[in-house]
């Protein structure tokens, strides 16, 4: 317990320092401007303490604890997803099978069984879900339900499990370990969300896809991309086996795919006429609202680094 490689420990402390600063700023704002309403900001920061606190706690407890943590995240995300999409009463059993895929998928992760990890949900669950549905025998809306359930498992179980698999890859950068890769991915994904938002607020003018997400602008997207690419190039050698050039491209990949994860989940919510996917995380909305970018950055970053170094 608590044997975190040096560079990863430093990165975790740096994140905590950022969080402390954000909390102090929030206290300062509430003191100096009592006329304004900072409740939303306070909620958001409190929730960040919970998210980061729990994540770091489980990462510190070791690989198995971390894998269980990510499995639980998958459970919460899958539950949230299949609760907001319209599925039929007859799909209960098939939905239960989708839940059952979680312990299996994360077992393959824990066992380091790469072949099974990579095909279990795209192949086996893909075939199993319609099998269970057909035994139930309700054909009205069959195609839509089969598609919805499998897509839900791909987004929330398959994608998210890639983050956990980073932990069982062999140590190529012994100063950072598997935790370094997870921190790099999560930090870059989150920092990309923030920088696209900040650049968009500062310079945003030309909308990219106004029908899906009216707040996304080319200025925000490109500003975020530039920021993340540079930061990733700087940080990559400390936390990952990548050199600066590989880190640069990794940052670019995270930035572009993070953007798409965000807008894909936005499109889902727009389709359902809802603003937030849930109310699990006060100030943020649901768990999918927080993880939207990670659904895309996780697998893409994983396969990038897997191709380069493993």
């Amino acid at each position: 317990m608590f044997n975190i490689p040096d560079n990863s420990l430093t990165a975790m402390l740096a994140v905590l320092v950022v969080l402390v600063i954000a909390t102090l700023i929030q206290f300062y704002l509430r003191k100096t401007r009592p006329d304004k309403d900072y409740r939303e900001l306070t909620l958001r920061i409190t929730s960040w303490w919970w998210i980061i606190g729990l994540l770091f706690l489980f990462l510190a407890m070791g690989t198995t604890a971390s894998i269980i943590f990510f499995a639980f995240i998958s459970f919460l995300a899958l539950k949230e997803f299949i609760s907001i999409v319209p599925i039929r009463q007859a799909d209960r059993n098939a939905a239960f099978w989708a839940y059952l895929s979680i312990p299996f998928q994360y077992y393959w992760v824990a066992a380091g069984w790469y072949g099974m990890f990579i095909i279990f949900i795209p192949v086996y669950l893909f075939l199993l879900i319609p099998m269970r549905m057909v035994l139930k025998g309700e054909t009205d809306g069959f195609i839509k339900s089969a598609g919805t359930l499998h897509w839900a498992a791909m987004l929330t179980v398959f994608s998210v499990s890639h983050v956990a698999y980073l932990l069982v890859l062999p140590d190529k950068n012994t100063l950072a370990g598997g935790i370094g890769l997870v921190l790099f991915l999560l930090f870059m994904t989150q920092f990309n969300d923030v920088s696209q938002y900040v650049w968009g607020k500062l310079l945003g003018k030309h909308k990219i896809i106004p029908k899906v997400s009216p707040n996304k602008t080319w200025q925000g997207f490109l500003g975020g991309m530039l920021t993340i690419t540079l930061v990733a190039a700087l940080v990559a050698p400390y936390l990952t086996p990548m050199n600066r050039i590989e880190g640069l491209i990794g940052g670019l990949l995270i930035s572009i795919s993070g953007f798409f994860g965000d807008v894909v989940i936005s499109a889902v919510k727009r389709d359902l006429n809802i603003k937030d996917s849930g109310s699990l995380i006060p100030g943020h909305g649901g768990i999918l609202d927080r993880m939207d970018s990670l659904i895309y950055t996780g697998p893409l970053f994983f396969h990038y680094i897997y191709y380069l170094h493993y």
Binding site: F75, K79, E80, I82, S83, I84, Q89, R92, N93, A95, F96, Y99, G278
Partner: peptide
């Protein structure tokens, strides 16, 4: 709303849904 999907009348299998 949703609890009737999680555990409807006459079913023994509880399926998790956010309600």
């Amino acid at each position: 709303y949703g609890l009737g999907r999680a555990l409807p009348r006459g079913e023994a299998l509880l399926v998790p849904f956010t309600c």
